[in-house]
Design a protein around this nucleic acid. Structure first.
Lengths: 216, 216
DNA sequence: AATTGTGAAATTGTTCACAGCA
DNA sequence: TGCTGTGAACAATTTCACAATT
């Protein structure tokens, strides 16, 4: 009933809990304590309890959380207790890899259509999905009731395509182009920037000593 | 001279500044104010100044920051003012896509060796790099003076491989397997989980209204 | 006895506001 | 005057600590 502002990190941790619960379920655990769940995810028990408490009281004092039920609750919170119609735009290196990425399918992200602007690719088949022409993007997104778009086109083409995507009402975009795209406030766009993660690693390498402390 | 604890988000913002400066340089800007840089990255000017101030005084009061110099300074901070020897393990869907990912090369992340355990792939060639047998992993990592490892193997194989990687002294790993890997404290591992980003998007879709506020 | 759920405290991160400098 | 650099104020997030519950 209570409504609160949920932070991005809380959501990401829910994703982690979900994966852990999935594993625990396979290992036939019936219940799990915040302590054990925290240990598996390298967090503190208080963090786990606080995160979950934003959404309700799912546990039993003295006992812990019921694995199967909690997994279901988190799935519902994350919106993965259903399937989503996804379009993947750009069937280049990254795009083709993503078509085969099992994890998407497994979480209910159903890639229904592929798009490319390269005439040699249009009409070809990837994992049983035909590649359509980006010229018919808006029309096909609507026809296929697409709710979520994954963008894997070159940086130079990305803004133009994203404008079309936004224009036909898509509210969620996962972008692999290494560029900051402009979208209206009511559209959520996440940019997956792999080079940035390498830069973070390179930073830790040159600034050695992970547990670095301030000198003041 | 001063030494402080730098947050992960600060580092990520430096990566963004670096990209923006790169663009600005191409646009022939000589200087840039924190205000303008903030606008381009959708941040506040104070944030930009504070981030940079952790590392020194790079600007000129009344004028702003010299684009070219600041870019160089950030490159140095991030450790991308040099090249890194990278090994990519796992030449499946994602692995092959990463070999061709221009952005890595561009930032000085030089993929020197590829590994796979599939006999059909071993000896084959991707973008001029020969695929080696994971059986010789440790030996080859050392021989090629690898400093950074990108892991793109199935989740089931990941922990075993990471143990070998850690064993021969690698301190930085970028992991694409959707699993939490155990590494010693002095090894930095970043896990790129693409399904997690989709889950975040799906969360925003079911919990509509981006600017959500608490009700108390 | 064990473990949740949660206010309060501690910590971390961001923004303000202004002195200091070109 | 314009804009940086930064301590202080503020905001958000995490951790603590303990009452409540099974």
């Amino acid at each position: 009933m209570r409504e609160r502002k949920i932070s991005e990190s809380t959501i990401h941790r829910l994703s982690h809990y979900y994966r852990a619960l999935n594993t625990l379920e396979k290992e036939h655990f019936e219940t799990i304590s915040s302590k054990e769940l925290a240990k598996r995810e390298k967090l503190t028990p208080a963090q786990v309890r606080k995160d979950l408490s934003f959404f309700g009281s799912f546990g039993t004092r003295g006992l812990g959380y019921p694995v199967k039920e909690l997994k279901g609750r988190i799935a519902k919170i994350l919106g993965i207790d259903r399937t989503w119609n996804v379009a993947l735009i750009g069937v280049g290196n990254i795009g083709s890899a993503l078509v085969s990425y099992k994890e998407f399918q497994r979480q209910g992200f159903n890639i229904k259509v592929l798009f490319d602007s390269d005439q040699r690719k249009i009409g070809s088949n990837h994992k049983g999905i035909t590649v359509l022409d980006t010229d018919h993007l808006e029309e096909e997104l609507q026809k296929n009731k697409i709710e979520l778009v994954v963008l894997a086109v070159p940086a130079s083409a990305a803004q133009n395509i994203v404008d079309h995507v936004v224009h036909c009402g898509i509210k969620a975009i996962l972008n692999f182009a290494p560029i900051k795209l402009k979208v209206p406030d009511d559209v959520e766009i996440r940019t997956e920037n792999m080079a940035m993660e390498l830069e973070y690693l390179s930073f830790t390498l040159v600034n050695n000593k992970k547990g670095e402390r301030k000198k003041t």
